[in-house]
Design a protein around this nucleic acid. Structure first.
Lengths: 211, 211
DNA sequence: GTCATATTATACCGAAGGGTAGTTAAATAT
DNA sequence: ATATTTAACTACCCTTCGGTATAATATGAC
């Protein structure tokens, strides 16, 4: 875990902000993949030297794990926030998928999802990455269950809404979007899928019309 | 392209069958990923020496591309055959997804899909791999269009069946299954998704009941 | 100022990995 | 038989890459 607390003890102070560095590191891994993102490129793109990177983060694997954590705190969270900010489930789902579409196929950053397209392929080799994938599905499932159950209690969804089925399809369709973006799908294609996906998740939960 | 024709000209004959070697190569790449599958491991697992591999296939990238082509000719084709052998679209879709489930989460081979989980992550770096991904979606789309239109002409589907929408969802759900398998989903989970996915594709095509 | 501590910069190491030279072996062609 | 062609094996080369030793520099504590 990276120390984000700004210490003010003795010693020469850092010339960089760890989170700013991690944002650049995210982009390098995201663009090149884990193996092709060599430490020299990481150092050059962050503006740091290799020893500075290693002093701050430990190893390439640790640096990658730190980047993954920050990616979840920023990118993944942004999608989930888009879901919760809407006033209805259908609108929320559409907002989620639209935000996801921008995240995986928008301008200003590499395509696809860092977790699905970069971290998952090295999960078998890097134990610390595997550990992230242990906890992640459960956490995601809990959050979504809480969301749907809240919507039921708000009477935005019927009592008999099939939450597990909706969540399963929700995640499947999100995964498909990230992979298609990595395979080269354009933003507008994914944006239209956002509409379709939201409707399908509602259907799978038991809402037969398009409400 | 690998020469499969069994020449009978001068020179010492091969002690191996290129397709048998490729099946092993597929498994090594499938299990370890492109980068972690080093040439020494590939040589050891195939029972060949490195110079033999290089003489037969050219380079690591060429070997990978040859393995991808064979993977499509065998594994991908098996799924598509399962679709076409059924007597109704719903059953065909279910058979496809069940075969896919076995392919990505069954025993006897690594998990996930070689194309989605191994080839796609290196597409940005390996131009010959990128070329495969150029043609693949179009070919797949053509095959599926032909299938659905034949089912319409056989009156197993109504005239107003929305073929493009069904195909899009069909592919999305297949992609999701491959990724979940790579992420560790068990076979039985994917098998139950096969049923659900078949039903959803029919729905998306315009079939409102479960026929 | 001086010491202790932490960061930065240069230059480098050792291992691993893709690929190959050079030689030996096994077939066909004549 | 001999030459020719192609494959196989040993041993090796060279680059790349993750990681680091060493020295210099910048701060806080006293």
């Amino acid at each position: 875990m990276v120390e984000n607390i700004k210490r003010r003890g003795p010693g020469r102070p850092r010339k960089f902000d760890a989170d700013v560095v991690l944002d650049t590191v995210i982009n390098v891994f995201w663009e090149l993949g884990y193996d092709a993102a060599d430490t020299e490129t990481l150092a050059r793109r962050t503006g740091l030297t290799k020893p500075s990177l290693y002093n701050a983060f430990g190893s390439k694997e640790d640096l990658f794990v730190a980047a993954l954590h920050r990616y979840r705190q920023t990118c993944s969270k942004a999608c989930f926030d888009a879901l919760k900010q809407a006033s209805t489930p259908l609108e929320g789902l559409r907002n989620y998928y639209l935000t996801l579409a921008e995240m995986v196929a928008g301008d200003g950053h590499p395509t696809g999802c860092l977790l699905m397209s970069v971290a998952l392929p090295v999960r078998n080799r890097l134990h610390k990455v595997a550990a992230i994938f242990e906890k992640m599905p459960h956490e995601s499932h809990m959050q979504l269950t809480a969301y749907f159950e809240e919507q039921i209690s708000l009477e935005n969804l019927p009592d008999d809404f099939i939450v597990p089925a909706a969540i399963a399809l929700f995640q499947d369709l999100a995964a498909a979007m990230t992979m298609q973006a990595r395979a080269g799908a354009h933003l507008d294609v994914l944006q239209s899928k956002a509409q379709r996906n939201a409707r399908l998740v509602m259907f799978e939960g038991g809402i037969l019309d398009g409400s």
